[in-house]
Each structure stands twice: as C-alpha cells, then as structure tokens.
Design a protein around this nucleic acid. Structure first.
Length: 554
RNA sequence: GCGCCUGUAGCUCAGUUGGAUAGAGCAACGGACUUCUAAUCCGUGGGUCGAGAGUUCGAAUCCCUCCAGGCGUACCA
C-alpha cells in the first residue's frame, strides 16, 4: 500500500525538479509514513520539507507544486492535503483498503509473508548453553527470542536455519565428568567430601545413579583420568537429551546441533589458526599466540593459543563461525545474553579477518532476566544447583504465557520475571487477551455455522456495508501486518509482533462490545463475518509467528 | 578507570529509525452482563520523556557533558 503512494510521488518528482530548474539527479529518497493520527490521512510524506533546504523555497509552496503534479492513475486517492509545516497527507479511498481483505482471503495462513529477504540463507544461533545442567529460566528469554526471530525471518522471505552450538569440549566438561564420578563414589560410600568446585545439583546424583545401575561398580578402582571421559560423555548425552526435551516443551526446535568437538575432529581450529597466521593476524608474545583483534577495533589483542599450547575457546569460536559461512550462510545471527556483549568486538574481528564483511554477523544481545520470587531476587547459578529450570516455568506458568511474557519487551530492555506474579496473574496475562479475541471470533463463526451461515467468499460480500469507523480501523490495521513482519525482521525486533497482536485484539474487543456481527440483516452479517474471519486469520498468523497457540475456545 | 545496555504517567513498558497535540496495560475512581464468551468494554484523573547544553523548519529519538541503575572488562567457557 505504502509503495503505491511512493510510486505516485516518484512519478511526479522529476517534473517538479525540472520546474525548479534543478538537476534532477540525485533525486531525494521519497519517504512515506503511515500516520499516527487519522486526521492526517493514511500516509504522509515530509518530502517538501526535505526539498525546501535544497530549493531554498517555502516547504508549503513546494508541497503545492508536488500536489499539482501528482497523477493518481489507479485512482486510489480520495484526498490529498497540505498540512502543518509542509506535510503532504494522503487519504486513500476506502474501497482500496477493502481490497486488502481479498488478499487476506487469498493468502490465508501465508498472509504476512513477503519476499523481502529474497531467499537469502541466514543462520540463527541461539541458546547454545553448555550441556552441564538443565536449562534454567535465564536461558528461556534467549530461546524464545531466537525462535521467534527465526520465524519472522522465514516469513520475511529468508531461508532460515536454527542452530544450537554445543560447547562439549574444555574444562567445564571435564569438571562435569568429575562431578558425576564423585557422586558415583559417594553412592558407594567411597568419598569423604564433595568438592565445592563441582556441580552441586541433584541431577548430577541422578546421573551417577544411572551409571551405577548400568555399569555397576566397575569404575571404582580405575584411575581418574581414564574414567572421567566416560562419565563426561554419559552425562553430556543425558543432559543434552534433557535440554532438547525441555526446549521442545517450550516450543523451540532446532534444525541442527553443532558440536564443538566436531570442530577439533575436523582439525577446524588448526586450519583456522593457519589461515590467520597466513593473513598476518597472529603474533607471539609471552609464549602465547595472539590474534591482533585491535586491527579491527577491539580494545586489546586476544590470545588464541595459550602458553601451555592449548587453543582458547575464542579460537574455536572463530573456527565455528568460519564454518558457518563455509556452509553457505551469507548472514549469521547470534543471540547472546547481554553479559557476553564484551565478546562482540573480538568476534567481529574474527569474521573480518577471514574476509567477511562485518555486517554478515549480527549479534542480538538479550538483556538478562532478573528472577524474583515475591519481589525478592533469587540467586542462581548452575554450579550451586540453585536455579529455577525452564521446565518448571513451562509447567507452572504455561508455555504460551511464558513465551509471550518474554516477547513483550525489547530485547535490550531489562526484564523482571517474578515467579509469584507470573503464577498469580496468569489469568491476567496479556497473552490471554489476544487469545480470547481469537476464541471469541471462533465462537461467532461457530454460531453462524449453526445458523447455516458460512464465511462468505469475497465476491459474495458487499464491502460497502462496512462503513463504521471501527471497521475501517480494523481493516487498516490488518493491512499493516505484512509491512510489520518485514519491519520486525529487518530490525530483528520480535516484540513488535506482540504489541501488534495486542492492538488488533483491543480493536476487536471494542468492536465486539459495541456491535453485533450476526444480525437480522443477512448482507451486513455476511460482510462482518468476512471481516472477522480476516481478523482471525491475521491474529492466528501473528500468534503462530510467536509460537503461541490460537485457541478456538477458552 | 574504560566499554555496552537502560532511564518516558504511581508501577511495568511502547513510541513505525528525525515528524504534527508523547501512547498502552496495571493500579485508583465511576459505569456496562436476560445479548455472538464480562479472561471483555466505556469513561475520568495522571508527564520537566533522568539533567543540561547543541544540531534544524521540527528532538523522547541524533551529537556532547554530567547523574543514576544493570552488565562486562581472563592465557574461563
């Protein structure tokens, strides 16, 4: 819709420029915005004010000139006005808006999708929690944000791949295996004290018990360095399986899990280091090998090979990102907890040193969730074993409510999650407001069907009967959905969808309370049924992108 | 110290990438169920957009300086 306005203006522009005796090139970009206030029409452009600086003429005068040259070939405009300091306001004919209802009918569950992304292959990496314990609530926000971003990007025409990076190499994993081993010994009465540095959670005991019942006491007297890897592998497998189950219960399913070990098996890290050496990005100092990340804007250089000869996590991570690009993803999005933000400059340096443009890696920083219980902060750490698991939250609050909650704020805004409040207020959660709108519509459609009225086809509808301001407001709001999805994808801002869903629901609830859809007037009933069916489709599509169900009854 | 994020109504937050008179929800107060679902709706009150200076036709939005809170600042992952 917006584009049609833009092209009308663009057609008139050369003539305006010629008249002002100005070199028509470069033409200023035509910016058209949906207005906030209906009194300002449907769309507005500030073009005249932009031009006034260049033409050194009164903006209202320029606006006048532009308006006189406009050629509305498809006759979509009802009125064009010059307002305020020089805005040009466009009022579309109501019939034009109503044709959007036909598009909704035709596209159905695909309404909202676009080809803005042009099929570009993008990878979204998120969660990527170490498999040293179950996912807790701190992981939940990133999980939903990544999942919904992937949904939105797919709808916006990208080819999306969701990936979980499994950090199954390194000290933490060794520590995990050791923790299980000590619990195993403890079960057999062969451990004096469980070390504080080990993972304290109950789940470690459970895993130890599993190993005991499977393999018996055979590990008891064998040397630690021989036994720990067995325990590590077993524990990591069990924990990762649990993580996948918890994510699935939360509605998050990955296309692939990428193992850090795989990177070492394929010699990926060594290859990466050679590549960096050849590029002249590496130097030696203090017995370690350093990557000159400062050449790409980092505040200090970073070690990639330690004094003891081991590569760092950072080295592996660059190799991992290299691998992503080599798999054909031209755009890579990482969803990180905000506590990792300091890591961004060096990761970007890695990408650039490999010859990829900086914008090929986008990092979405998700601010940490402040967990409260009854207003009091809850201390959490995986090691201490004190945490509220993702599974508990899903079970207590519900998947829909939990997801919606995490999507109601910008990702870079801090979020308080109070367990008591989430539980107590679950019936007042905004998600129910939106779902209720969907259920109410479904209810009306059911009743209509009982009375022998099916949702009509567009050709059978006299859209001219939809004359109420509430109806026009609804139709215009629905029409915004495709642009909204594309905009949310471009900005990587999933929260826009929850706000839009709320807005649609509010418009509907208000309309519902004021007017009847099914009435004695068959033609009017048909028109309104058609309208609310279009609304139902958009609500459902919106909720679907959020990974939230759209119930027919509540 | 330095870096990143945040600061908007009593509370929790939006604000379409610089637009016109700054908006929702909750809380407060007053109303609406014999009706297609009241998990809803209608109305009222509520603002120095953290502070100050700057950029321009125009600033919550951009630049600079402060203030406050959060996070980060490893040869850990």
């Amino acid at each position: 819709m917006k584009n049609r306005i833009v092209s009308i203006i663009a057609r008139a522009l050369p003539e305006v420029m010629a008249e002002a005796r100005l070199d028509p090139l470069p033409l200023p970009p035509v910016e058209v915005e949906a207005t906030r206030d209906p009194a300002h029409g449907d769309y507005a452009t500030n073009l005249a004010m932009i031009l006034s600086a260049r033409l050194k003429r009164n903006p209202r005068q320029i606006a006048r000139t532009i308006c006189d040259r406009l050629q509305d070939e498809e006759s979509i405009l009802a009125k064009v006005e010059i307002a305020g300091p020089g805005f040009i306001n466009f009022f579309l004919r109501e019939e034009v808006w109503k044709t959007e209802l036909q598009r909704i009918e035709a596209m159905g569950e695909r309404y909202g999708c676009s080809d803005a992304g042009g099929g570009r292959r993008v990878q979204v990496e998120f969660v990527s929690a170490n498999p040293t314990g179950p996912l807790h609530i701190g992981h939940a926000r990133g999980a939903v944000v990544g999942d919904v971003l992937a949904n939105i990007l797919r709808a916006a025409g990208y080819e999306v791949y969701r990936e979980y990076y499994v950090n199954d190499a390194g000290n933490q994993m060794f520590n995990l295996g050791r923790s299980v081993l000590y619990r195993y010994r403890e079960l057999l009465g062969r451990l004096a004290a469980f070390p504080e540095t080990c993972y304290q959670g109950e789940y470690i005991r459970a895993i130890a018990a599993e190993i005991l019942s499977r393999d018996g006491e055979s590990y008891l007297d064998r040397p630690e360095e021989e036994v720990v890897p067995v325990f590590t592998d077993y524990a990591a497998t069990v924990i990762l399986r649990g993580i996948k189950e918890d994510l699935a219960a939360f509605g998050v399913v990955f296309d692939g899990y990428f193992s850090e070990r795989e990177l070492y098996r394929d010699d990926g890290v060594a290859k990466l280091l050679r590549r960096l050496e050849e590029g002249g990005h590496i130097y030696g100092e203090d017995g370690a090998r350093w990557f000159r990340t400062t050449a790409f804007g980092d505040e200090k250089d970073r070690v990639v090979v330690r004094q003891n000869g081991e590569t760092t996590y950072f080295a592996a991570d660059i190799a991992y990102h290299k691998n992503k690009f080599e798999r054909g993803f031209s755009w890579v999005i990482d969803v990180w907890g905000a506590d990792h933000h300091g890591y961004l400059p060096r990761m970007s340096a890695g990408v650039q040193a490999l010859g990829y443009p900086p914008e090929s890696l986008r990092v979405v920083l998700v601010q940490l969730v402040n967990l409260l219980r009854g207003g009091k902060p809850v201390a959490m750490s995986t090691r201490s074993g004190e945490f509220v698991t993702l599974r508990e939250v899903v079970d207590e609050v519900g998947r829909d409510a939990a997801r919606y909650n995490f999507l109601m704020r910008r990702t870079d805004s801090h979020l308080d999650f109070d367990l008591e409040v989430a539980k107590e207020q679950s019936n007042e959660n905004p998600v129910y407001y939106v779902q209720y709108a969907h259920a109410r519509i479904a209810g009306i459609l059911r009743l209509a069907a009982e009375r022998g009225m099916e949702v009509p086809r567009y050709e059978e509808v006299e859209t001219g009967l939809l004359v109420l301001s509430e109806e026009m407001a609804l139709i215009k709001a629905l029409s915004r959905f495709p642009e909204l999805v594309a905009g949310a994808a471009a900005a990587l801002e999933p929260h826009r969808l929850t706000f839009f869903a709320n807005e649609l629901a509010a418009l509907f609830h208000s309309y519902y309370n004021k007017y009847k859809v099914i009435s004695d007037d068959p033609a009017l009933s048909r028109a309104r049924l058609f309208l609310i069916e279009a609304l139902r489709i958009v609500l459902k599509n919106n909720l679907h992108l959020l990974g939230v169900s759209a119930p027919d009854r509540m």
